[in-house]
Structures are given as structure tokens and as C-alpha cells.
Design a protein around this nucleic acid. Structure first.
Length: 737
DNA sequence: CTTTATGGTTTTTTT
DNA sequence: AACCATAAAG
């Protein structure tokens, strides 16, 4: 018997012991969800004598997986290396590596990130001659990803309905999948889809995994999408030992295809499911919890729960109204100092949250000026930096020579005098010969339109990579990476091609990469796991920013509200509480999107243990100019007696409005009256004459959309051209008469 | 054929 | 302000 079950409350203990059959744990914020899950795994192993290799636990981040594993090991006092625990993506990747041959891939397939996807799509779009002006590759990528997350295939798509892109989508989808297969690559979405396909096509493989994983646990179930749902459903077919944990109020990934109905309808899928509600919050002071409850209580898409705490009420929530974003940042710094001196906080007790990454800049500047150390999660990811991606692309090509996206990324970097034209010729040749682009490089001499001099350069590159391919099993990953960086001249390039400051930071990043490879290898070897180059690359692809964060750094943490999920801090700032920002403008018109914005705020508020500071700015720099804004309607949803306004802000807050219809009307009117574009909207009509500074006089042919993003098609007589312009940037002026 | 300059376009959240 | 695609220069 493991000790410590007295750490659990009654409901938690019941939930831990309900091991067999479907179980839904509705766990409010700070209700000891992780603790319950941890004990449940320990209980299965220790009391029910289930082997750790027979348990599958799915978490939302790799960091959560690592922490949970450590906690279970501490409870058991034993190593549980054979427990499968990780994100959907990493678990699926692991299955796919093992079964890749069944799907016509090799086990060293490459995982394409969204940048790679866009590059691939660009190529396909040009081949299929999809009107590029109308649909950017980026837009198509997100559309396609959404479709794939819903486990839809080209044939499932209705090419007639919706906008013009639907006409092309099935075709793009087919070509894109074909391209991926030729490159021995899968994208993020394939990682989820392919296992399901495999389970459907080969029932014996489904059974194999079903039998292996006798107990399945899924955390953050409210953020699963359809593909993830199907994967789990097929996996537990037969034994049905499935335990899902989630909180519908914390569902914040709808935009990524997460389907809140997965959790709302769990009891319909499994009608004998036992449901446990964890409603006691151990994290936040009373006032904070009450405020958070009040906010999320305005939502309709919820099961509903009554989250309560025995903790003291604590301080009121401070609301600060700043003139502009700089002042907001200054105020944050003041309060950070105040918290440190009066309450003896350390930097690591403090988190500053915001809706969009762009907001961090001003705050960072102010923190730096005041010598407050901070770490920032998100923004430009470490592995997304150019200098890192370049080296990683070399490594990817070495592991998987079929990967033409990585090849094209580096074939002329550092500059080798091999340009686009040459590559297109080789690509054409590869297609004709039905060989990979890499193999075509080796046969460049057979292409008559390429000069011998040029061919020589190509061969040199081909030999370079071939050499590394044969070396890859002899050298360790670090050795490979560092030799590569100096031999190819990448290091030299970054040392010389930039100004000193930039150059130093880029070189430092490259060194950091080497270090993290070493760290990874050590860690993996220690745990008796796959440690080679391929596994490092997979780790890199599936790594989230939060995964490498640890709170032991003595620094203030800056991150988006999304990234804050699952974390807790004594002191939390939520900044930019303005209409248009939180809720974000484009997510405010649709009621269910507005509700997701509200949940996002709820997630942020419930991160705070003792002190919560909310702030907004009346004016904020956006792009290159200042925009005025009004306070977020969400502020209005917090009972006034829980708030303490900084003096200046009281008059800036909206009047408390009536409940019900009046309030909803108010939400709408915010967008009707406060959006000044609406007022200007009748400036532009079809047929209207306009003037443009570069194109001269023109006539409006068509209008699409509204507001800043309105697309205006104008025919310019003088130039004899027709252009589609976005209002925000177009700088058109109407001509009277 | 490659490199550089110019001008047009663009920011939501992320595995 | 920064990034990308295309056009002109080398």
C-alpha cells in the first residue's frame, strides 16, 4: 500500500479507485486534477497489479508528461520507464515509427511543421494553378489542417459549398498527401490520422494496441479534436477502461479543431460512465475564485459546476487603467517591486499574461530597463530561429534524404551558387525519372541544360551530404551537428555576415543547440530510451515552448494565456483587457467564439493563488500607429465588490449593466458603435470613384468583407489594371461626384 | 543565373 | 517594423 492517500479528498479517492470501465472526471481549476491522475496511475500499478507497460497516459504537453511520470515514480519509489506517457502527437509518432512499413513509410520519416507544410503547399498550388492572389498558402494550410483534424478525407469534402477555395481543396489535399508520401514525411495532423487509418485497415494492429494498453487515461480532454477522440475510442474498444479528465470551462483550443462536445457528450458515448466532479479548489484565494466563477458563469456552453474554496478571501483584485501600453508596463514593474518588498516575493512567483505574443515587447522593454530578469515563453520558438532551423534541416536531410523541403532549404545555404532555376531543372528531371530530388542531384550530369560548372557545384553538395549520411551511425549526434556547422560554413556565415550583436546571439544559439543535443542524448541513455539522431529530430518537432521551461529560474515569466494552462503562480498579471484584444476582435462576433475568449480569461484568472492584477490601456500601439480602445466587457462581469480600482480607472470603466438581454445587447452594440470602421463603411460603394497615391484614379468594381479587412477591387483607368486591395493598407480616398 | 533592391503585404492563440 | 515575392542589377 502506498502512503499518502490521505492527501486525497473523498471524491478524488473515489475517482482514483474507480479503475474499470469508462470514467469522466470533471475537474475544476486547481481542484487537484494532476494529483488524482497521478494517484490513479500509482493505484493501478500498486493495488491492481497492472504492469506499467499496460497503461497509456495522454497529457497536453511533454512537460506535463515528464512531471506526472516523476510524481508517480516518487509515489511508487520505482522507475516506470515502460509506462507510455506523452502528448497525443508523441504517442502517435511512437506507434507510427513502429508500424511505418504498414503505411509505406520508413521508420525515419520526417515530421513536417507548419512552415514545411506551407512550403509544400506553395509548390502544389503552383502546379495546380490555384489562383494565388485569392488564397495564400498559409490560409490553405490552416484550412487543410482543420479538415484533417476532423478526420475528413478529400472525398468527404463538398467542393460546391462555401467559398471558392472549396472547389480546389479536395484536389490540393490529394496532391499534398501524395507529396508527403514521396518525401517520406508526415505533418502534425497525419500523426493523429494515420494511426486511426491503420487501426481501420488492419484490425489486428488495433487489437495489438488495445490489448497492450489495458488502461487508458486522457488529461485535458476538453481540448481534444475529432481525430484524437477517434483514436482513443478505437483504442479502448473491447475493455473500455478509459478515464478522461477535463474541464469544459478551460477549453481554449477550439480554433485548432478542439471539439468541446467530446467532453460534453462523454456520457452519451459511454452511457454507463461514472462521473466525478472535483469542485474544491485548493489553489486560489476566495476573491479570485469568486471573480473567475462570475466571469465564466456568463457562458452557456457548459455543464456547470460549483467551484469553492476554504481559503481566505484574500486581497481584492486590482484593476488598473493605463493611458497607453507603455504606462501599463510601467505600472506592472511598480507592482512587481511592491510585491517583492512588501510580500517578500521572488521573481519566479510572478507571471505576466497576455492574449497575443506581440504584447510582450513593451513589457519586456520595461522589465529590462528595471533590471528585472524574466523569461518569455512562446513568440519565436528556439527551434524556429533561422540559424537553428538551418542546422536542423541538414540533420533532417541526412536522416531522410527523400525530404525535399529540407533539401531546398539548405542547398544554397550558405551560398553555393545553386539558385532557383537550377533547382527547378533538377526537380523536373527528378519527376521525369521518378526519383527523389536528392538522387537527382547525384545524376545532375545527365541534365543537358545545366552547365558542367554548375553541375560540379551540385555534385559537391551531393557528395557533402552523402558523406554525412555514411557518417551518421559512426558519429554521435552532437559531433555530427558541430562538424556540420563548421564544415559547411554555417558557423562562419553567422560569425561574419551580421553585426556584432546579432552575430553573437546567433552563434550563442547554435552553441545552445549543441548543448541541448548533448543533454537530450544523456537523458535518453539514462532512461534506456532511443537516443539517436532520428529521435532527437522527432523530439525537436514535437517540442512545445513550455516543455523546456522550469520554474526554478529566478525570473518573472511572460507568456500567452494559452501557454499558461496548467500552471499556477502566487501573483498573476493579466494585461490588455480591452475590447478587440481580450476578447480578440475577430473572435467576438460569434457567440461561441466569444465564450472561448471568456474561458481564456477564466484560465488566466485561475492561475493566480494570492494576487491578481488586471489592466487595460486606453491607447495601444498596433502595427505602426496608436489605436484607441475601451475596457473589456469581461471586466464588467466581475462583481464590483471584488475589485479595487486604481483611482484613475474608475471613470474609465463601463457602467455596470443589467443582466440578461440588456447585457447581450451591449455586447453587440460594442461592435456596432465602437467600431469606427462601421461609420466609414458607406464611404465605399461599388461604382464609386477613388484615388490611390500610386495607381491614380480608379473605380470600385467589388467589395468583400467589412471593416479594416474589407477587400476592395478597383479598376485603375490610367494604368489599365485591376487590383484587389485590403482597406487597412490601401490608403484609398474617395472622389466626390 | 544569382544577388540585391524594391515594393507589397501583414499579426491570434500552437501540437 | 519586419517579412516575403518579384523585378532589376551584376
Amino acid at each position: 500500500m502506498i502512503s499518502g492517500y490521505d492527501e486525497l479528498n473523498e471524491v478524488q479517492l473515489e475517482a482514483v479507485k474507480a479503475t474499470d470501465g469508462p470514467v469522466l472526471i470533471l475537474a475544476g481549476a486547481g481542484s487537484g486534477k494532476t494529483r488524482s491522475l497521478t494517484y490513479r496511475i500509482a493505484y493501478l500499478i500498486n493495488e491492481k497489479k497492472i504492469k506499467s507497460s499496460e497503461i497509456l497516459a495522454v497529457t497536453f504537453t511533454n512537460k506535463a508528461a515528464r512531471e506526472m511520470k516523476e510524481r508517480v515514480e516518487n509515489l511508487l519509489g520505482a522507475n516506470i520507464a515502460s509506462l507510455w506517457i506523452g502528448t497525443f502527437h508523441s504517442i502517435c509518432a511512437r506507434i507510427l515509427r513502429a508500424e511505418s512499413a504498414q503505411l509505406g513509410f520508413t521508420s525515419s520519416f520526417t515530421i513536417y511543421d507548419s512552415d514545411d507544410q506551407v512550403r509544400a503547399l506553395k509548390k502544389i498550388i503552383s502546379i495546380l494553378s490555384v489562383p494565388q492572389q485569392l488564397y495564400s498558402a498559409k490560409m490553405i494550410q490552416s484550412r487543410l489542417s482543420r479538415v484533417k483534424n476532423q478526420f475528413l478525407f478529400p472525398d468527404d469534402l463538398d467542393s460546391e459549398s462555401g467559398d471558392g477555395l472549396d472547389e480546389y481543396l479536395p484536389q490540393i489535399y490529394r496532391e499534398y498527401q501524395k507529396f508527403l508520401k514521396e518525401n517520406n514525411a508526415m505533418d502534425f495532423d497525419d500523426l493523429l490520422i494515420k494511426p486511426i487509418e491503420l487501426f481501420d485497415q488492419k484490425p489486428e494492429i488495433r487489437k495489438k494496441y488495445s490489448n497492450k494498453f489495458k488502461y487508458v487515461l486522457v488529461d485535458e480532454y476538453q481540448d481534444t479534436n475529432r481525430a484524437q477522440y477517434l483514436f482513443i475510442k478505437k483504442l479502448v474498444l473491447g475493455h473500455r477502461n478509459l478515464c478522461v479528465v477535463g474541464d469544459e470551462d478551460q477549453s481554449i483550443y477550439g480554433w485548432r479543431g478542439a471539439d468541446i462536445t467530446n467532453i460534453l457528450n462523454f456520457h452519451k458515448d459511454f452511457n454507463d460512465a461514472r462521473i466525478f466532479k472535483l469542485e474544491e479548489n485548493y489553489r486560489s484565494n476566495g476573491n479570485i475564485l469568486q471573480a473567475a466563477n462570475a466571469v465564466v458563469g456568463h457562458n452557456t456552453e457548459r455543464i456547470g459546476k460549483n467551484l469553492w474554496t476554504r481559503r481566505k478571501k484574500g486581497d481584492k483584485i486590482t484593476v488598473y487603467a493605463a493611458q497607453n501600453d507603455m504606462e501599463e508596463a510601467k505600472r506592472i514593474v511598480d507592482v512587481v517591486h511592491e510585491e517583492m518588498y512588501t510580500k517578500k516575493r521572488s521573481f519566479s512567483d510572478i507571471a505576466i499574461l497576455y492574449r497575443t505574443n506581440a504584447q510582450s515587447r513593451v513589457i519586456e522593454d520595461e522589465l529590462r530597463r528595471n533590471a528585472i530578469s524574466y523569461i518569455i515563453i512562446g513568440g519565436v520558438k528556439f527551434y524556429d530561429r533561422k540559424e537553428i532551423k538551418d542546422i536542423v534541416a541538414y540533420l533532417k536531410l541526412i536522416v531522410n534524404p527523400a525530404d525535399s523541403i529540407s533539401l531546398k532549404r539548405i542547398v544554397n545555404f550558405p551560398l553555393r551558387g545553386i539558385g532557383d532555376t537550377t533547382i527547378s531543372k533538377i526537380e523536373k528531371f527528378a519527376e521525369m525519372e521518378n526519383i527523389s530530388l536528392f538522387n537527382a542531384l547525384g545524376r545532375v550530369k545527365e541534365i543537358s541544360s545545366i552547365s558542367p560548372a554548375m553541375g560540379g557545384r551540385v555534385i559537391e553538395f551531393f557528395n557533402l551530404i552523402s558523406n554525412y549520411i555514411s557518417l551518421k551511425d559512426e558519429l554521435s549526434t552532437v559531433e555530427l551537428a558541430s562538424t556540420l556547422a563548421s564544415e559547411t560554413g554555417i558557423l562562419h556565415h553567422y560569425q561574419t555576415e551580421y553585426d556584432q550583436y546579432e552575430s553573437e546571439s546567433k552563434v550563442a544559439n547554435i552553441k545552445e543547440l549543441f548543448q541541448s543535443i548533448e543533454q537530450f542524448t544523456e537523458e535518453r541513455i539514462k532512461n534506456n530510451m532511443e537516443s539517436g539522431l532520428a529521435s532527437f529530430l522527432e523530439d525537436v518537432s514535437l517540442m512545445a515552448d513550455i516543455d523546456s521551461w522550469n520554474n526554478s529560474n529566478n525570473a518573472v515569466t511572460l507568456m500567452t494565456l494559452h501557454a499558461a494552462k496548467g500552471l499556477e503562480f502566487p501573483v498573476v498579471f493579466i494585461t490588455g483587457m480591452e475590447m478587440g484584444l481580450l476578447p480578440l476582435q475577430r473572435n467576438s462576433a460569434d457567440i461561441s467564439e466569444l465564450e472561448e475568449e471568456r474561458r481564456l480569461l477564466y484560465v488566466g484568472m485561475t492561475r493566480a493563488e494570492e494576487n491578481l492584477y488586471l489592466s487595460f490601456a486606453r491607447s495601444r500601439r498596433k502595427y505602426a500607429s496608436f489605436v484607441q480602445s475601451t475596457p473589456s466587457l469581461f471586466l464588467d462581469e466581475i462583481p464590483v465588490d471584488l475589485l479595487s480600482y486604481t483611482p484613475a480607472s474608475r471613470e474609465a470603466l463601463p457602467q455596470k449593466s443589467n443582466r440578461g438581454k440588456a447585457r447581450r445587447k451591449k455586447i453587440q452594440s460594442y461592435f456596432e458603435t465602437s467600431d469606427e470602421n462601421q461609420v466609414v463603411d458607406d464611404t465605399y460603394k461599388v461604382g464609386q470613384d477613388v484615388y490611390h497615391s500610386t495607381f491614380g484614379k480608379g473605380k470600385i468594381m467589388n467589395l468583400e468583407g467589412s471593416g479594416d479587412k474589407m477587400k476592395i477591387t478597383v479598376h485603375f483607368q490610367d494604368e489599365g489594371i485591376t487590383k484587389k486591395l485590403i482597406r487597412q493598407y490601401a490608403n484609398l480616398s474617395p472622389i466626390e461626384g
